[in-house]
């Protein structure tokens, strides 16, 4: 089907064309509906997952920000962090100006302030109901991602060579964390990590999540390597570059999109993972999904909806940023945006 209806289209063709769009629209609605539901509910003035009569009447009484207040809590030192971050950012800008003559001032200050705000809010407290799990998630997910991306990229490069003995078996093992049902992985890791003293430690959770993220890295990176032209590395080598230089200067930039996308999958695997962390972790490693799970099961609290709304907003922001950046780079490279 073409994306525009040709002017000569028959009636049947027209019905089919618009009918198909309507069906697709409905499916998109199905995909997005649960997300649309949680946003208004997160402003519920009550402690239940219910649209109250007040909310349906659009009575301001029925709405409140209390779940957001609960989510953020009032511990920590966000403003102090913001101030320090802004000052550091300004200092950095000044240094750059003195050193290289660059006159960016707004961006470093903004980035510094934002960074300081987050650090001040999350690291300045202990045992806060939501901020501590958020901090744990923000520590565990990047570490797990780093592990699975670095090891996974290396292995994917190895796997893409022509003569790899036992390739099928190796691939099966590396993909297995995605295949094995989570409950089995969780139980196995629980028993095994207990025995070696990793259960209930940061490292235990990081290792477990890294293992779960590996298949995504392998799959995306090998996919990009399929289209990789080996003569480029040979050209680099013949021009006198050593293998390490070749890797970072030639191969890496070309497979980077695959690595980044694999890394994103690995990150979200860890950031959204609840079954394994429930088993492998303990109180000290309580992550955001864990807190959401207990929030759903043990306490009735729409705070998780506030948390979700914030996370959804962040992912919309990120996804659109990525899309805008992609378009910009295409424009810069002179490619048509299609």
């Amino acid at each position: 089907m073409d994306h525009k209806l040709p002017p000569y289209a028959s009636t049947g063709h027209k019905i089919w064309f618009y009918g198909f769009r309507v069906i697709c629209g409905l499916i998109f609605f199905f995909l997005i509906a649960p997300i649309l539901i949680i946003i208004p509910l997160s402003f519920n003035a009550q402690d239940f997952f219910t649209f109250t009569p007040e909310m349906l009447r659009l009575d301001p009484e029925g709405y409140s920000l209390k779940h957001y207040r609960d989510f953020f809590g009032d511990d920590g030192y966000p403003w102090r962090g913001l101030l320090i971050g802004a000052v550091l950012g300004a200092g950095f800008a000044g240094a750059m100006w003195a050193w290289k003559g660059e006159r960016y001032i707004v961006l470093p200050v903004l980035v510094g302030a934002l960074f300081g705000l987050i650090v001040g809010k999350l690291w300045g407290l202990d045992g806060a109901e939501w901020m501590t799990p958020l901090r744990n998630s923000l520590v565990i997910a990047p570490m797990a991602t780093l592990l699975s991306v670095s090891l996974g990229t290396l292995a994917a490069i190895g796997l893409s060579q022509t003569h790899v003995p036992f390739k099928g078996a190796i691939m099966a093992i590396l993909i297995s964390p995605m295949i094995v049902p989570l409950i089995i992985s969780a139980a196995g890791m629980y028993f095994f990590y207990s025995r070696v003293g990793l259960q209930g430690t940061y490292w235990g959770v990081v290792l477990a999540h890294a293992a779960l993220g590996i298949p995504f890295v392998i799959i995306t990176v090998t996919a990009t390597l399929v289209g990789f032209d080996r003569s480029l590395t040979r050209a680099a080598a013949s021009l006198g570059a050593n293998p390490v230089t070749t890797f970072f200067k030639i191969q890496m930039p070309l497979i980077l999109p695959g690595v980044i996308s694999g890394g994103l999958f690995a990150f979200i695997t860890s950031f959204d993972e609840v079954v394994v962390v429930l088993f492998v972790g303990s109180a000290g490693q309580q992550t955001l999904p864990w807190q959401m799970f207990t929030g759903l099961r043990e306490q009735i609290s729409p705070t998780i909806l506030a948390a979700a709304t914030i996370l959804v907003s962040i992912s919309i922001l990120l996804l659109t940023t990525v899309e805008i950046l992609r378009r910009r780079s295409e424009r810069l490279r002179g490619m048509s945006p299609g």
């Binding site: 239940f48 997952f49 759903l296 043990e298 306490q299 009735i300």
Partner: peptide, 11 residues
């Protein structure tokens, strides 16, 4: 879970 019945009653 202990939170189920209160939620169900409230709804």
């Amino acid at each position: 879970a202990g939170a189920d019945t209160p939620q169900l009653l409230a709804d």
